[in-house]
Design a protein around this nucleic acid. Structure first.
Lengths: 232, 232
DNA sequence: TTCATGCTTCGATGATAGCCGAAGCATTGC
DNA sequence: GCAATGCTTCGGCTATCATCGAAGCATGAA
């Protein structure tokens, strides 16, 4: 009858603004101390402590004791993924109050979402592809056009043969956390990201657990040349 | 400072048990009337109405008027995806109060998650693969072993060449909604699902929007022979 | 030991929001 | 027209829970 697989319980954990702010602050993969998180959420340490024990009980964060500090981090990438998803949905309401604060501009600009590029640049890339008719998007599905194939082969040495064989969607739309739009996932999204790395245009940040992607100077230029947007 | 991209707002919407039950009831893709949803959540129509307008404002559900009924459905697959993710996280807490109720046993047994198999059978398949060392899993990453490759080629005519070229993870772990474990996603997960369809072992339910996967009788048998679990 | 820092527990307060009864619109059917 | 069904709005009740002050434990430093 009523039941409820306690999806509500987890959602309620994220549903409190203070806790949501803490979780958001942890989205970059680094661990923060309880007091840092308190400050991040704009609450007192007592309140934060209460929130953190709830988050811990809900297995959303993991503590690690170190000296007299208590570091908290997101339990794993699944949690981060769900948070990204929620943020994506939130962005569509127009209710988007603000980005995640000016906290981590690097994270907002470019980061790894599983194995493909997300963030400002990720969205910009898909925008550019769409605008120039290199891909056609309808809802979740994205399809590469003939021009798109040529574009990829010429500029990134990516041949569609490599991608489409398994009949898995070459492209998929993935809701972006910090932006309002989709970015490009799927085998193509992954392949492009990998090509960026091979070309030394971009690399994942060295800090362990960080999801930030750093572009080199030439990488920035090349990216702008290919997907450069005079958008907005 | 505080900010908050109102991830909290969306999460709070899902965070109420009554609303969560409604959303869960909608997870099979069908649209339900307001009163059906009220009953589903165990609340009066007035209360349900209030909840539904909030969900609508949060763009989680879409209404459709028909006669004097008002049908509600999930806005799109992104919403369903986030709900699945939340359910997956909830399942790990041990706090799992119950499955989604005996509501839709078919949906719990086998369904489509994007393009691969999820549900009881999906989890069972990955379990079986793991137990027999056909894949090795560490955290999110899953890797096919040599035996696994032979197994796929022999039994499902799936060659790894078709999957691994683009250097995208052939396998990926995806948290299952109704079960406590991961099921198999990635290009392999998609390819297997497609093969099931080609072999007429299983097919998506005819009802538009439904995510249920129906197995044929021979399909059941073959599946059991390949991945049959005396597990649990 | 003594003090300071970081975090937690306790208790009380206050506001948010879920809930239902009753009444009000709308649509369909007679 | 009238009645019935489906849904919504309104008002008030209640419970839950976030919040903070104050006090209590730890850990680390002097």
């Amino acid at each position: 009858m009523k039941s409820g697989p306690d999806i509500a319980m987890v959602a309620a954990l994220v549903g409190d603004p203070a806790r949501a702010n803490m979780l958001t602050a942890l989205m970059n993969g680094r661990a923060l101390t309880a007091s840092e998180l308190a400050q991040e959420a704009g609450i007192t340490p007592q309140t934060a402590s209460s929130h953190l024990s709830k988050l811990e009980a809900g297995r959303l964060v993991e503590p690690e004791k170190q000296g007299r500090h208590r570091y908290y981090r997101l339990t794993d990438d699944d949690v981060a993924g769900v948070l990204e998803g929620l943020a994506g949905l939130a962005a569509r309401t127009g209710h988007m109050r603000v980005r995640t604060g000016p906290k981590d501009p690097a994270l907002r600009r470019a980061r790894i979402c599983y194995d493909h590029l997300a963030g400002d640049l990720g969205v910009q890339m898909l925008d550019s592809l769409r605008t120039r008719n290199l891909v056609k998007q309808k809802k979740q599905e994205i399809e590469l056009t003939a021009e798109g194939e040529r574009f990829l082969a010429k500029n990134l040495q990516i041949s569609t043969d490599m991608l489409s064989h398994p009949r898995r969607p070459v492209c998929k739309a993935c809701l972006d956390w910090s932006e309002r739009r989709h970015h490009l996932a799927g085998t193509l999204g992954a392949a492009i990201m990998q090509r960026f790395a091979e070309l030394k245009w971009a690399a994942r940040d060295a800090t362990p657990g960080s999801r930030v992607v750093n572009f080199t100077r030439t990488g920035e230029k090349q990216f702008a040349a290919l997907f450069g947007g005079e958008k907005e």
